[in-house]
């Protein structure tokens, strides 16, 4: 079985995996980083979004071996101790989450959006979120959260 080594949330980790092991399986089952979720089997829902070398990626749609030597950030690595990342804080402040299941992927996706396009319009935010499905919030408060975080980061 191949050995994979990567940096996850700032720490170097390695493990033996089957070649077919998905990145999300490596994170959840080998590293027990269960904040990254699996909500579908067709790469649609986005509950599994993490950052790979600074870009959002669906961790259900890449193999662990494709992440060898990559720098991975998961939802567990976003806050600075007890201090939430501005995006996490904005979601809390605007009731941008209900059941919490899509939330990790939603937040990781949103952070990438604001990194790439800090002045995203409402339409751009909604289009960016095409790959993240939420069944609880109706997206209204998610969009509001992202707008607030963008303002806070920009300001």
């Amino acid at each position: 079985m191949p050995t994979v080594t990567m940096r996850v949330n700032g720490k170097t980790v390695s493990g033996e995996v089957e070649a077919r092991t998905l990145l999300v399986q490596f994170l959840r089952e080998h590293l027990r980083l269960t904040g990254t979720h699996v909500g579908c089997d067709t790469s649609q829902c986005g509950a599994c979004v993490v950052h790979v070398d600074g870009n959002s990626a669906k961790s259900c749609t890449m193999l662990a071996v494709q992440a060898i030597d990559a720098d991975i950030t998961t939802i567990e690595g976003l806050a600075d101790g007890e201090t939430l990342h501005p995006m996490q804080e904005a979601f809390r402040n605007n009731h941008g989450l209900q059941c919490g299941f899509c939330t990790p992927g939603m937040v990781m996706s949103a952070v990438d959006l604001v990194n790439k396009n800090p002045t995203a319009s409402e339409t751009e935010i909604r289009e960016w979120l095409e790959g993240n499905i939420c069944r609880c919030t109706g997206y209204h408060n998610i969009v509001k959260s992202i707008q607030e975080a963008a303002e806070n980061v920009g300001g």
Binding site: L33, T34, G35, T36, H37, T74, I75, E76, L78, A79, L84, Q88, F91, R92, L97, G100, F101, T103, P104, V107
Partner: peptide, 11 residues
Amino acid sequence: DFRFLTGNGNY
């Protein structure tokens, strides 16, 4: 929200 936003939910 804190636990859900930090990946500490327990599903």
